[in-house]
Design a protein around this nucleic acid. Sequence first.
RNA 1: GGUGAUAUAGCUCAGUUGGUUAGAGCGACGCACUCAUAAUGCGUAGGUCGUUGGUUCAAGUCCAACUAUCACCA
Length: 606
Amino acid sequence: MDTPKYICVSVGWPYSNGDLHLGHLAGAYLPADIFARYHRMKGNHVLMVSGSDTHGTPISLEADARGISPQEVFSHYHKRFLLSLRAIGASFDLFTHTDTENHHQIAQDIFSTLHKRNYLYTEKQDLMYSEKEKRFLPDRYVEGTCYICGFQKARGDQCDNCGNLLDATKLISPRNRNNPSDELVVRQSEHFFLDLSQTANELLAYLDKRQSAWRTNVVNFTRNLIKQGLDTGLRGRAYTRDLDWGVRVPVDGWDDKRIYVWFEAVNGYFTASVEWAKNHGSPDVWKKWWYNPDAEVYYFIGKDNVPFHTVIWPAMLIGISGMYNEGDSTPINLPYDVPANEFMNVEGQKFSKSNNWAVWVPDMVKAYQADAIRFYMTRSFPETSDSDFTWEGFFTRVNNELVAAWGNLVNRMLGFAYKRYDGVIPEPNGLTPADEAILAKVEAGFDTVGALIEKVRLKDALNEALSLVRDANAYLDGRAPWKSIKDNPEDTPKSVYTILRVIDNLKTMLAPFLPFSSQKVHEYLGYDGQLFGDLTIQTYQESTRAHEALTYDPAKAIGRWEKSQLKVGQALREPSALFIKLDPEVVEIERAKLGKPRIEEPLEGE
RNA sequence: GGUGAUAUAGCUCAGUUGGUUAGAGCGACGCACUCAUAAUGCGUAGGUCGUUGGUUCAAGUCCAACUAUCACCA
């Protein structure tokens, strides 16, 4: 067996200002989870981290709209994230949030380190200032007439009419969105900037090294972005903002500003890794992923986040290299791969929170089996281009592929074996060439499916596994144990034993995708123990406050990405249907909910 | 306006470095089978690959322009 690798699975941080929707699952959480589960079964050391983004304007806006504090907004949704993610089986070693003492402290240390090492500079910007509120207004709080198309209700950051990004200070007759009588003036404000020009060439060289493995759109996009910056002399991007909700700028006299949410949120991968190590009583183990040249750090994100993960965060990593690791010259790891997914639309239209054109994870996990959701999502992952979630597709794929091909194969043959052989795996007394052939074909899947998962081609990987399921069905059709048991009973145990072992192999191969049902198959086959570890919600106490997090405990996991060694004589457990077949009505019922106001239902455990 | 990506059978998508009759799953149609949640297997019919123009002995696969969609940025 190969030496175990250290694999860090970093997953994008969602704003906790609303429930998770299917776009979150398709873009980041499910691909990351499949990838992580596979590597755990391979025996590698996986650290999968993410958390709620608790800062930023979206949280403040939601809080203002509801008349509650930002804390109340983010804790409410953070709790719902934890419950939703646990229900869908997202096996985070740590899903925390950004309002922990740990995160604040490290984000500030990162800022200070960059500051001390001269990667930062300051510059004055023109910004909209409210005389009444005595503060600078975030762009999204400003409204006015678009200076490009003349639309009267353009937002400060973007015009909803012409789609152009705007400069809030140039809006014609600007007003405060929350207070139209307010007087707005343009004022100068000083800010810190991250000097990207210092790290550009090192990053380009790094890209050259990794480009063959990265997705073409990610590489090309990143390279051009960096080059554009160099060509146009754009040195950097603002690291601070005029806000009061966020991580404080660790510089004297900057009390009225905060670190820009995007900059501290990407620090989260690092801060969460450190937190995980602390929580486990070995505060230095995070270095096995971050300061180990053989470790691989992956970032699972949506395409809108690419620049932050391939330009800004790597620039910061170069800048802080050696931090918390004094006396050791090993550089900190840059992203090994950033397998960004495109977007998943819903019934042909873009996701929209305000119009409720969305499918929400809490609603999904209440109504449908987690593996059914995971199956259809994986079949539709937007790996190369935007994809479409349709209820018709969900219905047909689940019923005709998951239930019919795989669920039914398991159900019919485990049932057959259980009934005909007194609940015990029969002794085959040698196998026929056809039996050997199907076993060899299925076993070869461990290499082909595994290789695809390692390349993060998860759709292809699942397709490959499914085609083995079809091969198994075809094999069964040829061997027909239900027939041989009547006219050639000595032959029957051979095909029954073979198909049980084939099912055992397929259950392992499908486990990263369908962990819940694979566990069931595992038990039906008479095995004890869990393929994967336990996913629980824990409370962690810091010096002044406590927070809840989702955490994966691998202690009980026995699942291995290895060929079945199914034992003759092992007692089976009585099987029942693996999956629930969907009623055709769900298509119309679910479609009817789109675009209509949604009532947020409490989740079990909330 | 700039940069990147996407556009292939009714639907959802594959198509590595250009090369004989463009692939898969689902759906449709036909046949077989009955162990199974009417599930499974076999077979058939369906595309000239967004548009236009190039390079080449040869292009879905390279180049240019254009159109549409998505993302990021100014």
